[in-house]
Nucleic acid binder design. Structure first.
Length: 1068
RNA sequence: GCCCCGAUGGCGGAAUUGGUAGACGCGCUGGAUUCAAAAUCCAGUUCUUUCGGGAGUGUGGGUUCGAUUCCCACUCGGGGUACCA
């Protein structure tokens, strides 16, 4: 009776499928256990041996837990939306759904051959409308929510509306867009529905905003930071540029602190937690406001805007509302001193129209603004004309005449400064965020990002040309150039000064591209003595460097060791160490009112729109430019058919090609785009969702995947709760694994899920790399020399397919010759009659001809061998190279195991009582394997099995009481052979849920120990002694031993250390 | 630059709280079986040696009776991230 793995494995795979052996029920008396794998993206290349590594580990764990009496949920599915299928569609015209379906079929066949205990009845696919219905539903929930910082959780938008209705927004603490105008309850009630919606959009957890995005022209889409590698796209390696676009964003920043805090209660790998912590980038510090000194600018105030502002305002100007367009049509004709500008900024505020030479602002506010905005304009001496959109639409000419009257009487405001020069004080202020407010007395200059909105306003005439040239030069530099060249120090003085808030001294204001517009406020207070970049900048431009550290020499470099700093030369901070100084200075800043303590996060809100076809469509249509959610009852909004998968000619996303992509709001259905009338039929959103949308809650959908009424029932989520073990790659550290935590917290806040962390334990499996094979071609000849001879020639290494190479690195020359036409007639220089290849460990890839498929291995050695070998390779979390030749070890182990159950070529076990020695082997194996599974140390379990089988073979053990439990403990690792043995042992049901054998320590009790005897820590010989001996007795025996005397050569030992049961060490 | 992980025979790796370094397997060497091959089985396999031993876990130092394991400094390799104020 041979071990016929092909037959055995095919039979049991069929049995499991036919009997739904691994189907999990949503109610059981057993305790639950949820084992999850990161579901794969079904690529066209299929699986290579690296992919199943994590699945095998999780499968072992799941199978083990079934033996231990748990109701195990172990599902699998496909993350089936994504770029490759779409790229393929663009090239071939094949619908991505078709190629995806085919790829999934291949994956399924490959996975089935490995014998996983997945509950396939729960399969999900992110591209299935029945699945993405719920992705759309979550999107709507996010849209209908805001983050209340007071209750520190997401709440329904209705709670925000009721606050607005009763108190306005002045006291609302929310995660929201910056600079939302303050309004009262009365204001709110007067706002039109459109205005209300516009305001609410600034608070919603998913919101539309004009964001600077990573635009990849070659792919025609926006990419997230984690989709960009070294400045180019991860897929395809195309150039990426910055571009402004109207995009959906997710307010993940609202959860920054909770995402940090949550890590304390989850058992995830520390490096992964570290990288999330770094990505979130919490820094504690303070916001400090510096006043800009009044300048001697006498030019007109119609200062050119920075390019950032121009970009922003351009969009507004290009898409004016009807009323704005109408009024602008009139005002734009005014020239000279009556010249107006539309959508301009004054101070920190944006106004609808402004005429600087006449100090006149026109606002669509209806009435005078009593808040900061109105007060600022008043202080600045602006004359504000208030009008409304309705008024303009009704009678534009009367509004124009009102404005004419206003500018007739207006005069520019003049103020006196200390130097008695007539200047304009525009009340500009620069806000900075700093993590070192304790060093504020060391500030000797400030630097603004070139894109900072104040740059254009504060620059003096003398510096104007230089500043503009610098801004232009910076704008031209690509991200790549800026990244490649961080050492060059560049910047320009604006000519303006700020006032130091404590000392009142003049501080130069510079611009420099080392300050990033996108982080903090886009401005820094520069402390050269305490910051390397500030130091380099000051040094380069000859700016003063003030030393405010006690006993530190800063003549060569900045002193950045904050923990060991003591402040000096700083008024009330003198003598204080870092922490105390921080606390003191923040208190003082707050007391004096020019700043406050603040925690800043590096984490940005996540852009959620992709200009792609193959992704989830948004359940959104647009009415008067405002997004409207489609009711849950009408979901899913199914991805429309398009003729071309490329962006449209006018630059719209691929969905712009769809003919049937409009929403009929009365019939509640998707209709032809020709019918759009903006009355009841509207344009649907053209963007699709990013790759991480579908993967952010899939683990919860597995709990109740067939549910058509809810994403999952309350009963299901309350039963399964969360994932007990999650296995997948660490490459998702700052992508999927962060976004899914964010969504889970949101779902928790809104009461949909019972826990705010969805995975208690996470393991990152390491990568399996390939072992590439190289042949060496003599340059200019069609001749290959064996590895040992290559030094005698000038050779060029060429990848050979690893299939042609055996375990001894010997090349099958004939197979290689037949591989490609050009090698047919090649000459081969051998050594000892063999051609030896060179070997190198590289990532598995088609182009390196080092890919090994699991199917090949299953065909040749069987799934059980593959499973054992993948585990045997090394620690799960470590990356390790694959070498097929090694598999013969586990293969012959399985054959040996099989033979234990065979007597005279027939299946037979003896009912005889096992010997103590046989029991000892069994129980030490049980003990070790259970410990190994608990530690995810699957590689050592495989060794343990080998040792057990070797020992039992040596003992010629054929006893049921040993071999039956052995089959059970083998089952998680090698389920097919275990099932077959179990059946042959006379059982009629699957082995998969029988109880795991109980470990009995009494079989491992020893009466003696082979002690190592060391001299000065070096082991010299061993001696077997009874474990019941006392320390004194041991010492007497050892000291009397002839080998001891030999080692000591007459010396008396200084000390004898005896650890009973462990070692004996003689020092002397 | 910063953060993280790693380094043990020809190779993958083992040594769970500091206690016999190299388990288990591959490969290799020799042998048995065979007409031969495959398969299987047996023995050997860290280096070195004058066969008594001696050295040895990336390098240098430290703590300890004892260090692959703990501490300090460094070298090399892999991964992540990047002018974050």
């Amino acid at each position: 009776m041979e071990y016929n793995f092909r037959e055995i494995e095919a039979n049991w795979q069929k049995y499991w499928a036919d009997n739904q052996t691994f189907k999990a029920t949503n109610n059981s008396k057993k305790p639950k256990f949820y084992v999850l794998d990161m579901f794969p993206y079904p690529s066209g290349a299929g699986l290579h041996v690296g992919h199943p590594l994590g699945y095998i580990a999780s499968d072992i764990y799941a199978r083990y837990k079934r033996h231990k009496g748990f109701n195990v949920l172990h599902p699998q599915g496909y993350d089936s939306f994504g770029l490759p299928a779409e790229q393929y569609a663009i090239q071939t015209g094949q619908h991505p759904a078709i190629t995806t379906e085919a790829n999934i079929a291949t994956y399924r066949t490959q996975l089935d051959k490995i014998g996983f205990s997945f509950d396939w009845s729960r399969e999900v696919r992110t591209s299935d409308p029945n699945y993405y219905k719920w992705t759309q539903w979550i999107f709507i929930q996010l849209f209908n929510s805001w983050y209340n910082k007071t209750s520190d959780k997401a709440e329904d938008i209705s709670t925000l509306i009721s606050i607005f209705e009763s108190k306005g927004n002045a006291n609302v603490k929310a995660a929201s867009d910056d600079a939302i105008a303050i309004f009262t309850a009365a204001d709110w009630k007067k706002y039109s529905e459109e205005e209300k919606q516009t305001i609410l959009l600034k608070y919603r957890l998913t919101f539309l905003s004009e964001t600077e995005v990573n635009w990849c022209p070659a792919l025609g889409t926006v990419l997230a930071n984690d989709e960009i590698v070294n400045g180019v796209s991860e897929r395809g390696g195309h150039t990426v540029v910055r571009k402004k676009m109207m995009q959906w964003s997710m307010r993940i920043t609202a959860y920054a602190q909770r995402l940090l805090d949550g890590m304390a209660k989850i058992d995830w790998p520390q490096p992964l937690k570290d990288s999330q912590t770094y990505w979130i980038g919490r820094s504690e510090g303070a916001m400090v406001t510096f006043k800009v000194m009044p300048n001697a600018i006498s030019e007109n105030r119609a200062i050119k805007l920075s390019f950032k502002e121009i970009e922003e305002l351009k969009v507004k100007r290009l898409n004016p509302s009807e009323a704005t367009a109408l009024l602008w049509g009139k005002l734009r004709k005014k020239k000279g001193t009556s010249k107006f500008r539309a959508n301009y900024t004054v101070g920190n505020f944006e106004v609808d129209f402004v005429c600087f030479s006449k100090n006149t602002i026109v606002e669509f506010a209806g009435k005078k603004d009593e808040n900061a905005r109105g007060q600022f304009f008043e202080k600045e001496g602006f004359n504000v004309v208030y009008t409304t959109l309705e008024e303009v639409l009704e009678n534009v000419d009367s509004v124009v005449s009102k404005i004419d009257t206003a500018i007739q009487f207006a005069t520019p405001k003049k103020v006196e400064n200390s130097e008695n020069v007539t200047v304009e004080d525009l009340g500009y202020q620069i806000e900075v965020f700093t993590t070192r407010p304790d060093t504020i007395f060391g500030v000797s200059f400030m630097t603004l990002a070139p894109e900072h909105e104040l740059v254009s306003k504060i620059t003096t005439p003398a510096q104007k040309a230089a500043v503009e040239a610098y801004i232009k030069a910076t704008a031209k530099r690509s991200e790549l150039e800026r990244m490649a060249d961080v050492k060059t120090i560049s910047g320009v003085f604006t000519g303006a000064y700020a006032l130091h808030p404590f000392t009142g001294e003049k501080v130069q204001i510079w611009i420099g591209d080392y300050v990033l517009a996108g982080y903090g406020t886009g401005a820094v207070m520069a402390v050269p003595c305490g910051d390397e970049r500030d130091y380099a900048f000051a040094n380069h431009f000859g700016i003063e460097i003030i030393n405010i550290f006690e006993g530190v020499d800063i003549s060569e470099e900045a002193f950045t060791d904050k923990e060991n700093s003591v402040i000096a030369n700083s008024d009330f901070l003198n003598g204080l160490p870092y922490k105390k100084a921080m606390k003191t200075v923040i208190e003082e800043i707050e007391k004096r009112g020019f700043g406050y303590g603040k925690i800043n996060y590096r984490l940005r809100d996540a852009v959620f729109s992709r200009q792609r076809y193959w992704g989830e469509p948004f359940p959104v249509y647009y009415k008067n430019g405002l997004p409207q959610m489609i009711d849950k009852a009408h979901l899913p909004i199914v991805l429309p058919e398009v003729e071309k998968y490329l962006p449209t000619e006018d630059g719209k996303p691929p969905l712009g090609n769809a003919n049937t992509w409009a929403w009929d709001s009365s019939k509640n259905e998707v209709v032809s785009t020709n019918l759009i009338d903006n009355v009841s039929i509207f344009q649907l959103e053209l963007n699709t969702m990013p790759g991480w949308a579908g993967s952010s809650q899939y683990f919860n959908r597995y709990m109740d995947p067939e549910n058509t009424e809810e994403m999952f029932s309350k009963e299901a989520i309350n039963y399964w709760q969360d994932v007990d073990l999650y296995i997948g790659g660490s490459e998702h550290a700052t992508g999927h694994l962060l976004y899914s935590r964010f969504w889970q917290k949101f779902m928790f806040d809104r009461g949909f899920v019972p826990t705010d962390e969805y995975a208690k334990k996470l393991i990152n499996q390491g990568m399996i790399t390939g072992t590439s094979a190289f042949v060496y071609r003599v340059e200019g000849e069609n001749k290959f020399v064996s590895k040992g001879l290559m030094n005698d020639f000038k050779v060029q290494p060429i990848h050979s397919d690893v299939a042609f190479v055996n375990g001894s690195d010997e090349l099958d020359v004939e197979a290689f010759k037949n591989w490609r036409e050009e090698f047919k007639d090649a000459e081969f220089a051998l050594e000892d009659g063999k051609y030896i290849v060179g070997r190198e460990v590289e990532k598995m890839s088609k182009s390196k001809y080092n890919v090994v498929n699991p199917d090949q291995i299953c065909e040749e050695y069987g799934a059980d061998s593959l499973r054992l070998f993948e585990m045997f390779l090394g620690p799960l979390e470590q990356s390790k190279p694959w070498k097929t030749s090694g598999i013969s070890g586990v293969y012959s182990f399985l054959k040996k195991l099989w033979k234990l159950y065979i007597v005279n070529d027939v299946f037979a076990v003896s009912e005889e009582e096992p010997t103590n020695e046989e029991y000892k082997t069994l129980h030490k194996t049980i003990k070790k394997v259970e410990e190994d599974i608990a530690n995810f140390s699957f590689n050592t379990s495989v060794s343990t099995f080998m040792i057990a089988v070797n020992e039992l073979t040596a003992l010629k053990c054929n006893k049921r009481k040993i071999l039956e439990p052995l089959a059970i403990i083998m089952e998680p690792y090698a389920p097919h052979i275990a099932e077959e043995l179990w059946k042959n042992l006379g059982h009629t049901t699957s082995i998969s849920i029988v109880d795991f054998p109980e470990f009995k320590p009494e079989y491992l009790v020893e009466s003696s120990k082979v002690y190592p005897v060391s001299f000065n820590g070096k082991m010299r010989f061993t001696i077997e002694l009874g474990l019941d001996l006392t320390v004194k007795e041991i010492e007497n025996i050892v000291m009397a031993h002839e080998r001891t005397q030999e080692q000591l050569q007459g010396r008396t030992p200084k000390k004898v250390i005896i650890v009973p049961g462990k070692i004996i060490n003689i020092v002397g």
